[in-house]
Design a protein around this nucleic acid. Structure first.
Length: 523
RNA sequence: GGGUUAUUAGCUCAACGGUAGAGCAGCUGACUCUUAAUCAGUUGGUUCCGAGUUCGAAUCUCGGAUAACCCA
């Protein structure tokens, strides 16, 4: 098939003197080319607009309004008489009356042959008049047409009609050759359009609230701000290893030290971890930090943001109705665990022995967990996470896993609880995570701005690292130095944008919302 | 990391130990007719790769690749 197309390409070039990759309007013998090209660029109409503008054109009627359209041919009936032309907005039918085709820069005789050389997949420009066929299909009746790009490979069949199982369904091809997926699966195009709108919506929301967007380093000498294994790369002239960032947190908080009070960054994050329907090695997050605020403010902001992006108080996600009506549930992790398992793992009431015993009763492998808090977290992950279908803020994270958050007795994520941090042994981090449909969507806390506490927390992480925990947070002396200059008390929030888009576009896999997901090469 | 499943023509799939097939696409022709156009004819294969069992393998066995899903 490819050979056939190449043959046609050569025919066009040699017999017609047309290079089907150039704007052949330029080569017109009629001398009108430049003028026509200008006209084309300024007057081209999108398919949806034609349908809108000529809605009332009666059957069989021909409008006198000269119209330009362009797009890809996806279907061809009656030997080129009817073409289905698709642009970004949809389909418009082209009607070619061979006997009526006038010459533009090629004469009518040649047009006949030109029609025969058109293939599915070719991108063409059409100059003609709106026309509703006797059968009622709004079309463009061609006066002249030009090949703008010859397709050597045919496009997969476009799916508009489910009556037969065709089109491109192989997920592997859809991910590897996403352009084909976009070309023929309208709902895929719709998802990514929505993605662009959501990201724009986040920017608009934050900008309205006075946040400033910044760009912080992706290449870092120390990959901090989260618990994850980083990718390592090498800088040749500095002759040193660098890490790809696993979070934007520590640099954004340096901006708070510098005096900005509301900052955010939307950007790519890299984590050297497994791939699943919820994980891609590179993904997009938005992190924001607000001075003179706390975790409470961050929860409210999260609600406001997501509700605005959803544009509806109830959405349907993979068969579940998700009620987004504010305020969303806020619950302590230990209360939630008790609710689900009937066992009390609250650090205040539960000894390490009891916690281990209870975990065993629940048949939960505690693995490396050494404290009540860590066991609580394991039980939560095992027993509760998947059940959090409706939006839920989970509070009261064990401090061991939250080295960048304030620690308090009550973990209400409110600033006034900080004063109780002296008796750290019985404490939770002032941290929350948002779950919807069992998926972690956001993570926020009242930021730790005490450099001494921060250093202690880093040193505790260092010990874990020494024990072989590759996800433990590295000691970042430079960040501690920044805190020593003083960071205002602040709230911080991170949202996984891909997962948020999954939720809002009703997508089951993160790969359905990432245009080019990470794949192993075929050879 | 473990398990399950899949990989056959450009696309969607069949053939389940006995000559590798269909629909669509492509090509040739008919038809100013259509919208899944139709009609007639027709081309097209390293059955993901490699080894084994067998008279005979797309099919059974083993190994590998890639992917999807589930579990950790």
């Amino acid at each position: 098939m490819r050979e056939e197309r190449i043959h046609k390409y050569n025919l066009l070039k040699n017999s017609f003197k047309i290079d089907p990759y150039l704007l052949n309007l330029e080569d017109s013998e009629a001398g009108l080319s430049k003028q026509l090209w200008q006209e084309f660029k300024t007057k081209r109409i999108l398919a949806t607009d034609i349908h809108k503008n000529f809605e009332n054109l009666a059957q069989g009627d021909l409008s006198e309004e000269i119209t330009w359209v362009a797009g890809r041919i996806h279907n061809n009936r009656n030997s080129g008489m009817f073409l289905d032309l698709y642009d970004e907005t949809g389909k418009i039918q082209i009607v070619n009356e061979r006997t009526e085709l006038e010459g533009g820069y090629h004469n009518a005789e040649e047009d006949k042959h030109l029609l025969d050389l058109l293939d599915k997949g070719d991108i063409i420009a059409v100059y003609g008049k709106p026309y509703r066929t006797p059968r009622g299909e709004l079309s463009i009746k061609t006066i002249d047409l030009w090949i703008l790009s010859k397709a050597i490979l045919p496009p997969p069949e476009i799916i508009e009609n489910k009556r037969r199982r065709l089109g491109l369904t192989d997920v592997e091809v859809r991910y590897r050759e996403r352009y084909l997926d976009l070309m023929v699966n309208p709902q895929v195009k719709e998802t990514f359009k929505r993605r662009a709108e959501i990201v724009l919506g986040i920017r608009q929301f934050l900008n309205e609230k006075g946040f400033l967007e910044f760009e912080t380093p992706i290449l870092q000498t120390s990959a901090g701000g989260a618990a994850a294994r980083p990718f390592v790369t090498h800088h040749n002239t500095l002759n040193m290893n660098l890490y790809l960032r696993i979070a934007t947190e520590l640099h954004l908080k340096r901006l708070l030290v510098g005096g900005f009070e509301k900052v955010y960054e939307i950007g790519r994050i890299f984590r050297n971890e497994g791939i699943s329907t919820k994980h891609n090695p590179e993904f997009t997050s938005v992190e924001l930090y607000q001075a003179y605020a706390d975790g409470q403010d961050m929860m409210q902001l999260t609600e406001d943001l997501i509700c605005r992006l959803a544009q509806s108080e109830e959405i349907e996600h993979l068969g579940e109705k998700i009620n987004l009506q504010k305020p969303w549930r806020r619950v302590q992790m230990s209360d939630l665990v008790q609710e689900v398992t009937g066992k009390d793992f609250d650090i205040a009431n539960c000894s390490l022995e009891q916690a281990k015993q209870q975990a065993q009763e629940l048949k939960i492998e505690i693995g490396s967990a050494q404290t009540v808090g860590e066991i609580l977290y394991k039980v939560f992950e095992e027993k509760c996470e998947a059940k959090l279908i409706q939006p839920t803020f989970v509070l009261g994270y064990p401090w061991e896993d939250s080295p960048l958050a304030f620690v308090s007795a009550n973990s209400t994520c409110s600033m006034k609880d900080q004063e109780t941090q002296n008796t750290r042994e019985a404490k939770y981090a002032e941290r929350f995570e948002l779950f919807i449909y069992g998926r972690e969507l956001a993570n926020g806390f009242t930021e730790l701005n005490n450099p001494f506490r921060q250093k202690e927390a880093f040193l505790a992480q260092q010990k874990l690292k020494d024990k072989g925990n590759e996800e433990a947070h590295p000691l970042d002396e430079d960040y501690i130095k920044a805190l020593e200059f003083g960071m205002p008390p602040s709230g911080g929030l991170g949202i996984g944008i891909d997962r948020l888009i999954m939720l809002l576009t009703n997508s089951a896999s993160i790969r359905d919302v990432i245009l080019f997901p990470t794949m192993k090469p075929l050879v």
